[in-house]
């Protein structure tokens, strides 16, 4: 299957949409053969998008509360090894990866995660905040660089 740029987010939820905005901007300039998809982020949808892929770059908003909004963060698969106890309501990337592993489903061998720190979003609104919009060009730059390096890798 084709390499994938997968954006997670909700564009009715302000800065939560930063991954979607980035992916839309990248559509025209992806390396040859790459696919771009958007997902709403409910965990098992991720399973559908990721199963059978080899190379995936996931772009999303993140809310760690440890760094200022607009900070660009990168994660690898090992960062998501730690399973939370059961969530009251949803399934996250760590659980999806654990499911794939336990069930021996074909899952990306090369997956990277690029995220931008945002403030918690608890109100419905469209559009990015000033600080996130200002950081967007750097986020795109990093997306480009990672895609290029993943495309070049065997």
């Amino acid at each position: 299957m084709k390499p994938l740029l997968l954006a997670l987010g909700n564009d009715l939820m302000g800065d939560d949409a930063v991954g979607l905005v980035a992916a839309r901007a990248m559509r025209q300039e992806m390396p040859e053969g790459w696919e771009v998809q958007e997902a709403a982020g409910n965990g098992l949808d991720l399973l559908d998008a990721l199963e059978g892929r080899e190379k995936v770059l996931l772009v999303d908003a993140v809310c760690t509360g440890k760094v200022p909004p607009g900070t660009i963060l990168e994660f690898g698969v090992p960062d998501f090894r730690h399973l939370a106890a059961a969530s009251p309501h949803t399934v996250g990337l760590p659980e999806v990866m654990a499911l794939a592993r336990e069930l021996s489903l074909p899952f990306p061998s090369a997956m990277r995660i690029l995220a931008m720190e945002v403030e918690p979003v608890m109100a419905v609104r469209e559009g990015l905040s000033a600080v996130v919009a200002e950081a967007l060009p750097r986020f795109l730059e990093r997306t480009r660089a990672i895609c290029a390096s993943m495309a070049a890798a065997p």
């Binding site: 997670l8 987010g9 909700n10 009715l12 939820m13 939560d16 709403a40 982020g41 409910n42 965990g43 996931l58 999303d60 908003a61 993140v62 809310c63 994660f75 939370a84 106890a85 059961a86 969530s87 009251p88 309501h89 949803t90 399934v91 996250g92 990337l93 760590p94 659980e95 995660i113 995220a115 945002v118 918690p120 979003v121 608890m122 419905v124």
Partner: peptide, 24 residues
């Protein structure tokens, strides 16, 4: 946790931050 999870409460429709979790 068990006391409220049985209801499968919707803690906040729609936030999809990467960790994807809404624990307590």
């Amino acid at each position: 946790e068990m006391a409220f999870r049985a209801y499968d409460p919707c803690n906040a429709c729609a936030t999809h931050f990467l960790p994807g979790q809404m624990p307590i």
